[in-house]
Design a binder for these strands. Structure first.
Lengths: 109, 109
DNA sequence: GATGATGTTCGATGATTGACGAACATCGAA
DNA sequence: TTCGATGTTCGTCAATCATCGAACATCATC
């Protein structure tokens, strides 16, 4: 996480957002974060190994979908709802509406 | 095109739509079709070979984004605007708003 | 029928992607 | 200071993807 890159609002690319959300697991994570709450990596109950989760979180972060914060050894993540809304109005909302049916089962531990 | 598969409205999958639109060339094609007009393959001025274009058109078709019609040896394509709107309300509109900036240059010949 | 235009399909190839375990770095707690 | 928890990074592997040219099928036209 040393090299956490968060693109600024104008740097959020549509194709990266779309391909980030095209993966069921990442879609599931975003669904879970859609309530606006900040979550810790370890609180996410995902059906993949932690190294795989780390890659997916990096993808979401680099795409500009999430913002990551470190606190000790823990990492917290939250959805960049406002940034996304201002960059692509209505996009996230319309995706979230249909997402649960196809997202991977991501719960809270 | 013998085996043209067009998913019905309820069979249009969000993840397939998103990954189909995550490619700049396909995004460009969809942008061009966004005016609702029906176009012929050959009228599309794309920076790839015809075999590559054929693959991309197949991807769009299978994802449920476009509908293809044969007429002699020619193939015509149009965007399934209405179907998409009823399946994922607002999705296409919000994507089209930001798409031109990132889409590959697809014009008319 | 022969020819040309239009798409599709078939390998082949190189790039990207998702996945894992192992090794590592960092920090907090015992 | 040692140990455990938390994430990252690395190397590997299999699968998918974008791309191309060549070969093919189909149809319209000459």
């Amino acid at each position: 996480m040393r090299n956490a890159e968060h693109p600024d609002v104008s740097g959020i690319a549509l194709t990266k957002v779309l391909s980030a959300l095209a993966d069921p697991l990442r879609l599931g994570v975003v669904c879970l974060l859609a309530d606006g709450e900040e979550r810790q990596w370890g609180d996410l109950d995902v059906p993949v190994s932690k190294s795989t989760l780390s890659h997916h979180m990096k993808t979401l972060r680099n795409a500009g979908l999430t913002r990551t914060r470190e606190e000790g050894t823990r990492c917290y993540v939250r959805l960049r709802t406002g940034d996304l809304e201002s960059r692509f109005p209505g996009l996230l909302a319309s995706i979230m509406q249909a997402a649960p049916a196809e997202a991977a089962p991501v719960g809270l531990r």
